[in-house]
Design a protein around this nucleic acid. Structure first.
Lengths: 97, 97
DNA sequence: ATAAACAAGTTTACATTATAAACCAAATTA
DNA sequence: TAATTTGGTTTATAATGTAAACTTGTTTAT
């Protein structure tokens, strides 16, 4: 009845990151930071976790002469996100508007 | 863009409990336990939190001579659950099927 | 009648997770 | 060149989740 929710995605900030990345080809650290309003430290940690899980790739380069970290969702990440959304619906159905 | 998710509801077990209670007049501890598959200890703790928040009421009585704990969602709980569902949709939209 | 097993939870100790404060390096501005 | 800003990372602490151990009482077996 209640499927297990992927604990990696069941986190406000990581979910927001994945939600952003699911909709675009790529996004850099600062963009994600402003969109989510997260602190840099927190975002850094959570991005690392998503990277470690293979849900996103993280590419460190430069934009002009400033460092720039670019994130992309992977196919595995897309799939996990999709499954999470489906699983979550089971939990919300009773109160859906 | 990403609304804050009520941390009390953004928990797998508490969300499942609320999901169950949103759909029925009341449910007792053991019913919730079997539906969710949670351990009694964990369920006890999480029910206490929902109670403390005023999202549910907890009534201790007896069924025959055995103790029986009955839970009910409150209007505040219904509202919080509804708002949580709405907020979550913002996070899921990118990957909705 | 007494012991063993079960039911319904609660308490508590531990593990995991989240978060922010402190830090670092390079670039820009005053 | 000194201070500030940008773009992060590391790390220490706080918050949260979870299961194991315990409690109280009931039912079943001996």
């Amino acid at each position: 009845m209640f499927p297990k929710l992927d604990p990696l995605l069941h986190s406000e900030l990581r979910l927001a990151v994945m939600s952003i990345l699911a909709g675009v080809e790529s996004a850099d650290f600062t963009y994600i930071r402003t969109q989510t309003g997260a602190t840099a430290g927190n975002l850094s940690v959570q991005i690392e976790k998503l990277d470690a899980a293979g849900y996103i790739t993280v590419e460190k380069g430069f934009k002009g002469r400033k460092p720039c970290t670019t994130c992309r969702i992977t196919p595995a990440g897309q799939e996990a996100f999709g499954k999470y959304v489906e699983a979550l619906k089971e939990y919300l159905s009773s109160g859906a508007s």
